[in-house]
Design a binder for these strands. Structure first.
Length: 680
DNA sequence: TAGCCTCGAGTTCA
DNA sequence: CTCGAGGCTA
């Protein structure tokens, strides 16, 4: 603050000085109260300062600022949240569910680092808060954006709601504040706050929240920040995102700097030298769990040194240097009243236990999948059994074990059906496969599921075509293949229950719209066995058009990365079926023209496929793949007649032999480099 | 041939 | 979220 520029005789400047002073004081008292739990003034005194600030800001709009404590009570409501892309994706953590798995994590770390078993790794342990992950962005020390984790890549902008968290500084204090600081943290509700909110809800005659995490999530996703402001959310920060102007050397270092800047860090965080200290922390936390003022669902162990974290790196969805140690899930005891057989899209028949409804951590559970008959035999689950049930990952119900001592002798084992429970066709259990399959070609539930799949969001994304409509389409006999969807008329739709002009028009428009989906989605939508979203996309990329794919010989299919004999055969079988071809042809005639993705055109390797074999000295396999793909080529896994080049490194083996046998051009790594260079 | 790593498929409840 | 299974690599 440069006082020399201010003129005290100017009322605007006098107000500014007072406003700054009030903000400083209020944030100071906030910190004492929420962070240090040591208030220095009474609530009434705090309120008086707060109201004075509100009044001054109201009088001089020029003094309003986004980091003012008055912003914590919430501004105007939003229509919807906008989306924020995380500069670094927010990965999830790998789980350990018991101490053995924690020790395995340590073994993996040592193996990756080339350490001996006797050496100890320095870890940092934290309680795992049961809340929601968010990312906060501080620019020059001021909180500018806060977003939810979302799918890890992008989340929702909840800045206004995050501002209402009193323990969180809107402006960092202390020294050496970084130009840019992204911090990840967990937003949660204390048990006390949770109970308070729920008793208010009950007084109002509304359904209470089932647990603090849901309550925190509901509060954070309030479009009206004034409501959030009345929910006393808390936050603990635990990891950095992108930081500029700060150099964190280790997790501990990071925590210390955060605390210095006034950011809340869980005081229970503790270093551990060697995994056994981390195991002790886990066990201690499990014992203390019920005494804590908030819910935790485990602990987190991280490698302390950031240099070593970088060395260990990450797998596709989680870092290798951290593990979430989950506490055993909460369990309940109930009775298996029946075992049903449900038929999925691919004909797999899955046993499902119908349970006497029982509450587990606030949710009533009445069904649980038993996965397959191996599982039933292994756990010896029978109809009438008393069983222990838990919610795996606190979501999906699972039968853990049978309380055999409760058996009366009247329990009935459940056997795999010999006929499909829905269509009566024969059931087959393929050797070496766990699944039991209905082989009926016209099995109704299979067909229903395959249409649902076709219309689903990641496939053709036909909005409004859900379970209800599909049921009706089928029972009215309007659709006997997905191609029929494209010849539905308004009159057809008007036969439906609860169908008006508007709805019919929307549905027809959605179907019309789906004609333009890209090829990857279309291939995925076909529901070819072993071809999911990912594989569909790489097929689309590799072949560029539906026609190319339909006619692709087996050899060409297996030459694509990640496609082996099984998947290739499955694809061939699908397209060799004339019925499938007819359906596809009819769709094309109705105007379904899956758009070809932008394939890199003009790349030097366009249409060329490469196989790399043996050890390359300059690149990793992934790097070389990217090089080739950037030039529009394909780096594939195995040699076929369609392969254009085989690049052989040191100790190349069977692929090189095969290349010679098929007469495919073989390049050394140097020759490949020349090819790259020459073509540039 | 074993042991990663990824992908596919099925599933619960509000 | 979890399990099973396919593909790749050492």
């Amino acid at each position: 603050m440069q006082l020399s520029l201010l003129d005290v005789s100017n009322p605007e400047d006098t107000a500014r000085i007072r406003v700054d002073e009030l903000r400083r004081q209020l944030e100071h008292h906030n910190r004492l109260y929420y962070l240090l739990d040591a208030p220095a003034i009474s609530d009434a005194e705090y309120d008086a300062l707060f109201r004075e600030l509100q009044r001054l800001e109201a009088q001089s709009p020029g003094l309003v600022s986004s980091d003012s404590p008055t912003r914590r009570v919430g501004g105007a409501a939003l229509d919807k949240f906008s989306s924020v892309t995380h500069r670094l994706p927010m990965l999830s953590l790998e789980n350990a569910t018991n101490v053995d798995e924690i020790r395995e994590f340590d073994l993996r770390i040592k193996k990756n680092l080339g350490l001996s078993q006797e050496e100890s790794v320095s870890y940092v342990c934290e309680p795992k808060m049961d809340g929601l992950a968010v990312e906060l962005v501080y620019v020059d020390g001021t909180l500018t954006v806060a977003s939810t984790r979302g799918d890890g890549v992008s989340g929702e902008d909840v800045t206004e709601n995050i501002r209402t968290i009193r323990s969180l500084p809107l402006r960092l204090s202390g020294d050496r504040i970084p130009r840019l600081l992204e911090v990840r943290g967990e937003v949660f509700l204390s048990l006390e706050a949770f109970r308070k909110i729920n008793s208010e809800k009950e007084e109002d005659g509304v359904e209470p929240f089932v647990n603090p995490r849901n309550a925190a999530a509901g509060s954070l996703r309030q479009l009206d920040p004034r409501i959030t402001a009345r929910r006393p959310l808390s936050i603990y920060c635990y990891a950095p995102g992108v930081a500029e102007g700060a150099d964190f050397r280790s997790q501990q270092d990071f925590f210390e700097l955060l605390a210095g800047w006034g950011l809340p860090v869980n005081p229970l965080v503790r270093p551990a030298i060697g995994i056994e200290e981390a195991v002790t922390f886990y066990e201690e936390m499990q014992q203390q769990r019920e005494l804590l003022p908030y819910e935790i669902d485990g602990t987190v162990i991280k490698v302390d040194s950031f240099a070593i974290q970088r060395e260990l790196g990450a797998k596709s969805r989680s870092p290798r240097w951290a593990v979430a140690c989950k506490f055993p899930p909460r369990q309940a005891v109930t009775v298996v009243e029946d075992i049903l057989h449900s038929v999925g899209r691919t004909g797999v028949i899955t046993p499902v236990a119908l349970l006497r409804p029982v509450e587990i951590s606030g949710v009533t559970v009445s069904r649980a999948t038993l996965h397959n008959w191996d599982e039933i035999v292994l756990k010896d689950i029978r109809i009438g059994d008393t069983v222990v049930v838990e919610r795996a990952g606190d979501v999906i119900p699972a039968v853990v074990r049978v309380l055999t001592e409760k058996r009366s002798g009247t329990e009935q084992p459940s056997l795999p059906p010999e006929q499909c429970p829905q269509c009566g066709s024969a059931v087959v259990r393929i050797a070496d496969e766990v699944a039991v399959r209905c082989m009926g070609l016209a099995c109704p539930p299979q067909f229903r599921e395959s249409i649902m799949h076709f219309a689903s969001r990641n496939a053709m994304d036909i909005e409004g075509l859900g379970e209800k409509f599909i049921e009706q389409l089928l029972s009215l006999g309007l659709v006997s293949s997905v191609a029929d969807l494209y010849s539905l008329t308004r009159d057809d739709l008007m036969k439906f229950e609860r169908m008006g002009d508007k709805l019919a028009a929307n549905l027809l428009a959605a179907i019309e719209n789906s004609k333009q989906r890209d090829l990857g989605r279309f291939i995925f939508a076909l529901g070819i066995r072993h071809v999911g979203e990912r594989t569909a996309k790489s097929l689309a990329q590799a072949f560029g058009s539906l026609e190319n794919l339909v006619t692709a010989p087996f050899d060409e299919l297996v030459s694509i990365r990640d496609i082996g004999a099984t998947v290739a055969q499955s694809i061939r079988t699908f397209f060799d079926n004339q019925g499938n071809i007819a359906v596809i042809r009819r769709m094309r005639e109705s105007g379904v023209s899956p758009a070809v993705e932008q394939k890199k055109v003009g790349g030097r390797f366009t249409g060329k496929s490469f196989v790399f074999t043996g050890a390359l000295s300059r690149f990793t396999r992934d790097e070389v793949r990217i090089l080739v793909e950037n030039e529009g080529g394909n780096a594939v896994g195995s040699v076929s007649k369609k392969t254009d080049y085989v690049v052989a490194g040191e100790e190349a083996g069977s692929k090189l032999a095969k290349a010679r046998e098929l007469g495919v051009t073989v390049l050394t790594e140097e020759e490949f480099m020349e090819l790259l260079g020459q073509m540039e």
